[in-house]
Design a protein around this nucleic acid. Structure first.
Lengths: 178, 178
DNA sequence: CCTCACATGTAATGAGTTACATGATTGG
DNA sequence: CCAATCATGTAACTCATTACATGTGAGG
C-alpha cells in the first residue's frame, strides 16, 4: 500500500493533521510495520484533497502553529475500501539484520553480538509500543488482531535471538578456557 | 542494504551470472526477506565491475545462451565487509497484510478469511523454501542462523493466524444459529 | 505450436527519502 | 541559550520496478 492509502486509513479512524498522521504511524498500531516521511505525507494529503477524498479545516492554535485538520469524505471511504480489498503483493520482511547475519564470516564475533543486541533492543521497543497502544486505546477489532500478530512474531524473534546470543557467549568462553 | 551490496553478498559465496543471482535471491536463504529484479541486478553488476569490485568471464554454453559469470575481487570483499559492518536502519516488517487487517471494518468476513488464507499460504511457502534450503545445502553458520530465525518467526505467525481463523469461523457459525 | 526456462540488457516511470526552508514556544 | 516539539511545505535525488527488446532450445 502507498502513502495515499495509508493516510486514508489513518483518517478513516479520526481526523488529523499531517503532523498527527506521522505521529500515529510512528507510535500507533502501524509503527512496527510501516514508515512514512513528511515529504510523502504532505503531498499525498494535498493531492487527496484536490481529488475530493478529503476535507480540510484550518485550526488556529495559541502558542503553536496553526494546523490543517483533514477528514475523510464518503468518496474517500470508498477509495480506501477499494484499495484495501485488492489482493496485496506477498509480504517480505526486508531485513537488514538478517542480511548482516547471513554474512557472518565477514563479521567479528563482537560485531555479531552488537548487531544481535541492537536487534533485540529494536524488537523490545516494538513490543513496548504495542503494549502501550493496547493500554491507552479502547481496542477495536483490527487493532487487536494486528497487536496480537505483532506480539506473537516479535516475541518469537526475541526468544530465538536470546537463545542464539547465549550460545555465542558460551562458545566465546569455551575455546578460551582450553 | 541495496542491490549492489546484495550482489556482492551472493558472489562472496560463489561466482554466478546475473540470472543465477536472481534465482539465488528467489530460492535461497534470501528468499523470505529480500527481493530484486533484473532491472536492478544487471546495471549493478556492470557498475560493480567497472569499479573493479567484480571480475567477469564469458561462458559459452551449448543449447543455452552464453552467460557472463561474475566473481568477487579482494576490493569487492573489502567493500562488502565495510557495508555489512555498518549499523543498519531499524527493520520494519512492511506488511500489506497487517494493513489490510487493521482496516477490518471495511472488509467483509469472507474477504477477511480470504486474506488470512492467502497469508497462511505465503507463510507456508516460505517455510517450505527454508526447509528445502537446509535440506540441499551443507549448512554454513550464517545460513543456519537465518533459517532458524525465519522458521521461528514464520511459525509463530502461522500459529497465530490459524488460531484467529478458527475463532472467526466459530463466530460466523454461532450468530447464525441464534 | 506454444510456452517455459535460459540469458542479458535498456528506458520510462514511479514512489519514496533526504535535505532544505521557515518559524513560534517551552523547558532544561 | 539551546534543544526539542509543534507545524507545513518544496525540490533534488535515490533507488528500484515495470515494461520493452531480443534470442535459443526443449518439452508438452
Amino acid at each position: 500500500m502507498n502513502v495515499r492509502t495509508l493516510c486514508l486509513g489513518v483518517l478513516a479512524v479520526a481526523e488529523a493533521s499531517g503532523y498527527e498522521i506521522k505521529k500515529e504511524i510512528e507510535e500507533g498500531h502501524f509503527s512496527h510495520f510501516i514508515d512514512a516521511s513528511y515529504g510523502s505525507i504532505y503531498p499525498a494529503l494535498i493531492q487527496l484533497h484536490a481529488e475530493g477524498l478529503l476535507t480540510v479545516r484550518a485550526e488556529e492554535q495559541t502558542g503553536k502553529p496553526d494546523k490543517k485538520v483533514y477528514g475523510i469524505t464518503e468518496a474517500g471511504r470508498r477509495a480506501l475500501a477499494k484499495a484495501v480489498s485488492e489482493v496485496p503483493a506477498k509480504d517480505k520482511f526486508r531485513s537488514e539484520f538478517l542480511f548482516q547475519m547471513l554474512m557472518q564470516p565477514l563479521l567479528t564475533p563482537g560485531a555479531m553480538l552488537n548487531a544481535i543486541d541492537k536487534q533485540l533492543r529494536d524488537l523490545n521497543d516494538d513490543l513496548s509500543r504495542i503494549a502501550e497502544c493496547q493500554r491507552k486505546e479502547q481496542p477495536h477489532a483490527g487493532g487487536q488482531f494486528v497487536a496480537g500478530y505483532g506480539k506473537a512474531v516479535l516475541t518469537a524473534a526475541v526468544i530465538y535471538l536470546e537463545q542464539k546470543k547465549a550460545e555465542l557467549l558460551r562458545e566465546a568462553v569455551a575455546p578460551a578456557a582450553e
